[in-house]
């Protein structure tokens, strides 16, 4: 009888604790992982909103930068964390759309491994050329490329997430071609491990 009473009280108190956890959330600081380096675009967005969200929720939000593999390392850390709301990630379509489509070795599923919280914001990309480039407008760039059939080289550096699909969309619109645009690592003798290059063949 005593054992039964103790067990019931234990069960009751455990239930009470878990109820309190979900309903009183947050009761302690929240960790927000930013899977990109400090002072980058995503980090800036995180710092702007985190401060205000902290005030609103009454608990501090600690930002932790965990960069690497175009954001996949940080994103994966959150995918594997306790789903109690105390570890979240502020990220971009790089980790949850483009990356998984390009990389079959992505360690998570963007849909199955995560709970979506909010679509926060959006921003365009900007097309840039070297200052030494003869092209001064998009039209001029297209003309330049058309006059020089062969290879247009697009070195992406570590920002392949922005460049690769854009380049393909761009080239398909410009040249209406469906050649291959292989994404090659460390081409052109560049030493940086995160360096990628695309060579699109222009006919």
């Amino acid at each position: 009888m005593k054992k039964l009473l103790c067990f019931s009280m234990l069960a009751l108190s455990l239930t009470a604790t878990s109820l309190a956890t979900a309903q009183d959330y947050p009761v302690r600081p929240i960790k927000m992982i930013v899977p990109f380096p400090p002072a980058g675009g995503t980090d800036n967005v995180a710092r702007i909103v985190a401060q205000q969200v902290s005030q609103d929720l009454g608990q501090s939000i600690t930002i932790e930068n965990r960069a690497g593999a175009a954001g996949m390392i940080g994103a994966d850390a959150v995918a594997k964390a306790e789903p109690d709301g105390y570890t979240i990630v502020l990220t971009t379509n790089s980790t949850h759309v483009i990356g998984p489509l390009l990389n079959p070795k992505t360690p998570y599923s963007p849909t199955k491994s995560f709970s979506p919280v909010i679509y926060l914001a959006q921003s365009p990309s900007i097309m840039v050329v070297p200052v030494s480039s003869p092209a001064k407008t998009v039209k001029e760039f297209i003309e330049l490329a058309k006059k020089n059939p062969g290879e247009i080289e697009l070195r992406i550096g570590w920002k392949w997430r922005y460049s690769a699909p854009f380049w393909r969309a761009f080239s398909s619109l410009v040249w209406n071609q469906h050649g291959t645009c292989p994404l090659q690592r460390n081409r052109i003798g560049h030493a940086r491990p995160d360096s990628w290059a695309i060579r699109c063949h222009v006919r």
């Binding site: 594997k80 789903p83 570890t87 502020l90 995560f114 919280v117 926060l120 914001a121 921003s123």
Partner: peptide, 8 residues
């Protein structure tokens, strides 16, 4: 490009 928040 978009920015979003996820949890596990």
């Amino acid at each position: 490009t978009w920015f979003g928040v996820f949890g596990p």
